[in-house]
Design a protein around this nucleic acid. Structure first.
Lengths: 217, 217
DNA sequence: AGATTAGTCTAACGTTTGTTAGATTGTTAT
DNA sequence: ATAACAATCTAACAAACGTTAGACTAATCT
């Protein structure tokens, strides 16, 4: 099939395998989900809003590019990111896309309705304030993702339970909500709800992948 | 044609445009070439060993992903990398590929026949030695690429002219030859020639892209 | 043992690619 | 003017891809 004349071609061919893995929107979404922690095919399919068959096929591609690894646990197959370099790559290709593609910036603008709701992205000072208790860093992702990895001093209330567990949050303090990253809508919805309920809430459009925090197995 | 139900899909779709651009071996090769400096379609086609038609088609894709830009100069069309972030991305996807794909590491091993010929990759001390004149940093790429960007204190002798211009190199000093990067064979050939002629020669498997040196227009 | 669940494999489809050839545009040289 | 050159556009083909459906495997539950 492949009959490359020069050795050089083999090199670029291999690198292109990574590019190919990153050339499908759904595969990128799966990578982002796996950056939050290990997951089963079933979970991934549900969270990416695709059929399990399609998820399985895409994960097959990701595994062929050695970007994800699997482990069988009973009747489940657990998928996880191969290592932190993969998460870094996801952040890196996304940031290049935002740098180069006006269309992407426009979609993002359209999504983030109120720029005032954005938290300043100075990580160090945010951690300092969270440590002192001046702000509440709120992780609104599902509980298992919080368990796998979370930002320093973060507290976990999944978005589904937020309405019922509002009392756990002190009213006086600013709540900084975050989720899976800039393309995830959970933190945005959380901020909307919190503000409606009279809280001082901001969204941090970053997550564990952006902060370079690797999920534990 | 495209009817994405959720706004989120639009985001991943845009990022996938970058992945798609990076999913073809030849496009990656073109990106690497453009990291050395701006070039015409004709030059790119020749240096990537493809027809001008094919080069034009691939460059069209790269331009659609906004990774390269063009400028018409007379009957020539000059292509250049959009900005430094593109070069950084090339280095980043390549390093992920080397991290994840054993096959790639095997091809590289096969290519670099003698590990003894590799220069230590401590950039700071190399620059220090080059400044003092203890080593000669030799750029063996075509002259125009040297002009567009080169490593600190490097001297230019294109590989084609090396045999005829050997006298320009002092015999007592170590010659550290470099070219377009780890996938380029020019420096390897230069080292082979120099050693045959009695020089103390090493290869630096990095280039301007790896050092983060942006070419000037 | 039989039914259920999670997941993969295979085949099939329509679509999108990579690649080449032929015609076309714009610029420079004679 | 005409020829030569650089580059793109169009059309065409085979190969590769995304997606879905159906059959299948393996583990769990009743």
């Amino acid at each position: 099939m492949n009959s490359p004349r020069h050795i050089k071609d083999l090199l670029y061919e291999q690198v292109a395998r990574i590019g190919k893995a990153a050339s499908s929107p759904k595969r990128l979404e799966l990578i982002e989900l796996l950056c939050q922690g290990e997951k089963t095919v079933d979970t991934l399919a549900r969270e990416a809003s695709i059929s399990m068959k399609l998820a399985s096929a895409h994960l097959r591609e990701l595994r062929a590019a050695r970007l994800v690894e699997t482990e069988k646990q009973g009747k489940y197959v657990i998928y996880r990111i191969a290592n932190r370099a993969v998460a870094d790559f996801w952040v890196s290709i996304r940031s290049l896309a935002e740098d180069r593609l006006v269309e992407l910036r426009m979609v993002i603008e359209q999504m983030v309705s109120h720029p005032k709701e954005l938290a300043p992205q100075d990580r160090e000072s945010l951690v300092k304030m969270a440590r002192k208790g001046d702000v509440v860093v709120l992780d609104v992702r599902p509980a298992d993702e919080f368990l796998a990895a979370h930002l320093p001093f973060a507290r976990s209330i999944p978005i589904d339970e937020l309405k019922l567990r509002l009392s756990e949050l002190p009213k006086g303090k600013t709540v900084v909500a975050y989720c899976r990253g800039p393309y995830c809508l959970m933190a945005r919805d959380a901020v909307e709800l919190l503000r409606k309920k009279g809280y001082d809430a901001l969204r941090l459009p970053e997550g564990v992948a952006e902060w370079g925090i690797a999920p534990v197995r």
